[in-house]
Amino acid sequence: MEYYIAIASIIGIHAMLGLSVYLVAISGQMSFGQQGFFALGAYLAGMSTALWGLHLLPALALGVVVAAVVGLLVGFPALRVRGLYLAIATFGFGEIVRLAFLNVRYTRRIGDRVVGPNASEGFRHVRYIYDRGITPLEYLGIILLALAVVVVLFFALERSKLGATLRAVEEDEVAASMVGINVTRAKVFGFTAAAGVAGLAGGLFVHYSSYIDHDMVALPLAIASVTYPIFGGLGSFVGPLLGAVVLVGLTESLRALHDAREIIYGALIILTMLFRPRGLVDEALVLRVKGWLRPRAVRRPAPAP
């Protein structure tokens, strides 16, 4: 049971990372740097509880706010660039954050421990939940609650004018700007919100793992965070969620294969993408499901061919 709780906790946190990439992706951009915001959220939230004695909630909030503010500051210049250029520029940002934390030393002695970011030695003793007897199941509840809040916001966003705006920007930026959409504002908003979501994931992660260092927010995390939405599909926010469930789930469930585990994992990714090149939950599937959900009476007849 505890094992499933652990897997679910990681799925919850990584799903948030996936949603963060997805939020940038629906305005037609690809960010490869969400792990930088994840790191900011993790370090800030970790410092808040471990060094400054804050409650978990304001600590997480602080992580989100700092990540979002940095997202805003980076977003304005960065969103001048697009496509693959943006992917590499944001990856550069993620690496700068990571290398900065590799050099940050801000520690204090609390009892017999040295607490705080300690350069290459990492940031130990973020034991807020364990010291307070919060069980893994309860913490999973907190993670899922946070995820639920994010998902509800996404749900609202997809139905709002803003969501339509972002999609319009993805479809055709020029056309969108011609019908009076402030393209830059929409994109910067998306980027800032995405940074906040990644920061939340980081804050939740550091309290789960009790430890964070620069190695944990490097290239592998960047790759993981973009695989969830692409593998899961960009048709709906369900895509990145499903992507995280399946990919993290596969990592664990293939353990019976021992040495061949990672090889089969890679092969399964290739095969899945060949059959569903737009991800598990693609636009066509979303339309079909929407069709099923809609009452039959309201369904308009298909136009004659």
Binding site: M30, I223, V226, T227, I230, F231, L234, E262, I263, Y265, G266, A267, L268, I269, I270, M273, L274, P277, R278, G279
Partner: peptide
């Protein structure tokens, strides 16, 4: 086997290949 229009799919297939 990936048709035009699936810009992101090769990103995933080549990540899979990289792992393999």
């Amino acid at each position: 086997f990936l048709r035009k229009g699936h810009e992101l799919a090769p990103l995933m297939t080549t990540i899979g290949m990289l792992i393999v």
